[in-house]
Nucleic acid binder design. Structure first.
Lengths: 347, 347
DNA sequence: TTGTAGGCGTTATCAC
DNA sequence: GTGATAACGCCTACAA
């Protein structure tokens, strides 16, 4: 069933049918009788336009490529896709998705495959915020980095969470509750600083934290480096911190999984969270709300990041500066894991 | 940069260039000198084929549509996409993805949009296994239901987890540990049976459980219906169960979040998991391994489900019966939450 | 062994 | 107001 069939059935030329179907009847001054005939033919035949053909002709596929390292491995990273999908739909686009599984050769190949399919642009996404070189293949057309910070100067725009500000927010939360002493970092080392390799979150969060604490005339009492931010590591690290000289009064856990382990260690030690020790965290995975007391966490705005990436991509011709880094705010989710110091046991 | 440009540059006809680039040189007996000239022209110009045009000509887009209700809301449902993506790549296909957000009108519209784009087939996915009517729009071409069980007889194939067998596996786990009495269901009501609306998991798991238990001459001591399988509900339900006449010796929690709440309630009651009360669960989300003791859970094989859907779709012309329901095994992940009865306190 | 030409289904220019 | 006709870039039957 093609447009030609419809035109024939309506007894008009293909051109006329095309104009009517693209809503340019008035403009082309086509009679409403003719329009009606055409619309009826469409109804009767169930005609649907062939978008491939249209794309060939118009040169626009209304499709955006979304290439990520691993969509699924990180649980809520799927929200990145969600946001991108929603924003794409708002602009009447569909997303072509592929995964590189961290393989640079595959990455290049997929980017090229997508360009071959004439996508309007490509979002190259990482599931956790990291530094990376911009693959050459990406330069072949419009593109945006999502959750990736270019290691070198580049013309490609990027969208990342504002990790430094998140660190500041976390530190402020503690200061406002009266914390000054015994604040420990769980996940990154302090003095000397040691962070998981390539992790923007680790270093920028730490920067933000130290910024605020030092402005307030205090600082971290210490920190434990963890290669991998999982519950077991958080558990061990917390145990270790509890054995330090300066008693722990507050823990800044670098993600919610680490916090999960920290909760276990604190409970094992007979310490009451928010009462004996405050905990603030990052990411705001669902588990943060499952814990008791509820874990106060600075959220990764996955959905918003995904949206933003599409929006930046689609307005690349317009306002936004070429190599701009767009930082998306990380909202604080206050729950019950931070206690006021004057109420804390032993204050 | 088109094939015509390449041919011109190599001093051959477009046909010759086309044959060489599609690897049919031998077949067409084209001289290697000519081949070399063409390949060099490709190199020099950086020519890449326009896949839109190729698709128009060949009628095949090598693209599969993946339409889901909500990709991202459920955390590990992203693995569905992952599996689908991998299987698609194995067959040299790309996925065009969209979300309906549960809106039937949008669903129809998206399915049609995908067909307009000449996708080879459509996977209609739900993020949790449920019954649903097959939308009419889906019948317009090849399609597979993923995590959706058609309410009525249909020609559309479906891929779902084998929930009944999972229920049997969970019950067997308890029987093998010597459990007979005080086995409670957390998440569904028993006598009268009451399950969350539309949830295949709830009813089929329960069926499997009761099948195995009754074959062993025993049965569930009771169950608490929960509308929504979240930790808080699991907590309350477990509290309630602990107050029942028949003492709880084993809990079958209908997902890991419910188990999470159950753990909290058991701990509150001073009961030791695996020692005083066994717990088995379903889904195997990451939290199952974070809990202490580790939670034994029957896993939802998201990745495999996604793969299977694509495989069924791509071989739809071949073996598989039209309306077939493909059930994917749910593997048991044994951890430490089930204790042997002879070792249980008070046995 | 290589080249010519037609067509996939649209859109869009230009006559009538 | 409407209708031929030519592209878009590629594939392929057929001719040479």
């Amino acid at each position: 069933m093609t447009l030609a069939d419809v035109a024939r059935r309506a007894g008009v030329s293909q051109t006329t049918a095309s104009f009517v179907l693209s809503g340019r009847r008035e403009e082309m001054r086509i009679s409403s009788q003719v329009e009606a005939r055409i619309l009826r033919a469409v109804q009767e035949t169930g005609y649907r336009p062939n978008v491939v053909s249209r794309s060939l002709r118009t040169g626009s596929t209304h499709t955006i490529g979304f290439v990520s390292d691993t969509v699924a491995t990180t649980p809520f990273a799927g929200h990145l896709i969600w946001g991108a999908l929603d924003a794409a739909r708002d602009h009447d686009r569909l997303l072509l998705i592929a995964e590189t599984e961290g393989d640079p050769a595959l990455e290049t190949q997929l980017i090229e495959t997508m360009r071959d399919r004439q996508v309007e642009g490509i979002v190259l996404a990482s599931m956790y915020t990291r530094w990376a070189n911009v693959p050459r293949a990406l330069l072949g057309g419009p593109s945006v980095l999502l959750n990736v910070l270019p290691s070198k100067e580049t013309l490609v725009a990027s969208v990342i969470p504002d990790e430094a500000e998140a660190g500041r927010a976390a530190a402020r939360l503690l200061l406002e509750a009266g914390h000054r002493e015994g604040i420990y970092a769980v996940g990154v080392g302090v003095d000397p600083v040691r962070t998981p390799k390539g992790s923007v979150a680790a270093s920028e969060r730490l920067l933000g934290i130290e910024d605020v604490l030092s402005s307030a005339g205090t600082g971290l009492a210490g920190g434990v480096f963890l290669d991998d931010w999982q519950p077991l590591g958080g558990y061990d690290a917390t145990k270790q911190i509890l054995a330090r000289e300066v008693p722990a009064r507050a823990l800044i856990c670098f993600n919610d999984r680490v916090s999960f382990g920290a909760y276990q260690a604190l409970e094992d030690a007979g310490l009451k969270i928010a009462h004996d020790v405050s905990v603030v965290s990052f990411d705001d995975e669902p588990v943060a709300s499952w814990l008791r007391p509820g874990l106060t966490s600075v959220a990764l705005p996955h959905y918003e990041l995904g949206r933003k990436a599409i929006e930046v991509l689609l307005s690349l011709d317009g306002a936004s500066r070429p190599g701009a880094v767009h930082r998306v705010e990380m909202p604080v989710r206050v729950r019950e894991s931070v206690g006021r110091v004057e109420l804390l046991a032993g204050a």
